[in-house]
Amino acid sequence: MSSNDKNECLVEVKDLKQYFPIKTGFGKTVPLKAVDGVSFSIKPGETLGLVGESGCGKTTVGRSLLQLYKPTGGEVYFKGEKVTDQNIKALRKEMQMVFQDPYSSLNPRMTVEDIIGEPLDVHKLYSTKAERREKILELMELVGLNAEHATRYAHEFSGGQRQRIGIARALAVNPSFIVCDEPVSALDVSIQAQVINMFEDLQEKLGVAYLFIAHDLLVVRHISDRIAVMYLGKIVEIADADELNENPMHPYTESLLSAIPMPDPNLAKTRKRIILEGDVPSPMNLPSGCAFRTRCRYATEQCAKECPSLTDRGNGHFVSCFNK
């Protein structure tokens, strides 16, 4: 990546590491490597999809990026500026988050007005009560809620509506970057489509960039400009959405894509499904070399000795594999 590119990046993550100490006995701790050296960058108004199976560290990447956990190592740059403890308070206005579970992410004792108004209160984004209310109603309209909903409590809404409230809360500070942590996986399929379309509309209107975390490949393919695939705390492949779908290089991506259900039964019959063998290794006890080698069809001796790094295969397609 040239230095010219760097200035264009809205968010840049370099070698982000997040280890959690796990107690294994009296006075003994073993680090759980939830995120182990992840690097990527997001341009303004772009959507980066982040996929991977449960427990591979997707959510942790999002939370460490926003400094909700203190990262063990690595750096995060926002608009070329390094994110530190000192400037994070100001950057909270620029970087926001939408949560996975719309049922636990809204305080049951607060009205919708207060939930959406909280970021306005904290950052003092209004001068009069009337202005606060006006802003809240504006945000509610933006996400498709009625003004009459303002005085209701979160438990009086459906899952989709609750997620809209969560999105309105994230948008209240007018951020330029939002981490969407599996925002649709707790919703019905029909509601998923509505919410995803809303994310796209909002991006068009407001020009926000997303880090869209999901485990549903179809959803990610629909919304993302680029997709990163994670396995056990590392990014194994990152490419443009179309490029990744048509030409997956990493064996893990291959098997993930082959697992997408196909609507056409004839096509589904002829397709070959790649089924991975074995279980995901424990992140506390990772295999030597490439983390994926225990389940990989192409694994060689080299894979056990060295850890492959992301290499450019042209066209912005990065893969970390020796054999593909």
Binding site: R63, L66, L68, I88, K89, R92, K93, Q96, M97, F99, Q100, D101, S104, S105, L106, N107, P108, R109, M110, E118, P119, V122, H123, G166, R169, V173
Partner: peptide, 26 residues
């Protein structure tokens, strides 16, 4: 442990306000 506390942290709410508005009422 609830997400709404984490959401409040992501907003940048100071700790005493989180305790007062989110945790104690619950």
């Amino acid at each position: 442990q609830n997400d709404y506390v984490l959401a409040s942290k992501a907003i940048g709410t100071p700790a005493h306000r989180i305790i007062r508005t989110h945790i104690l009422p619950n």
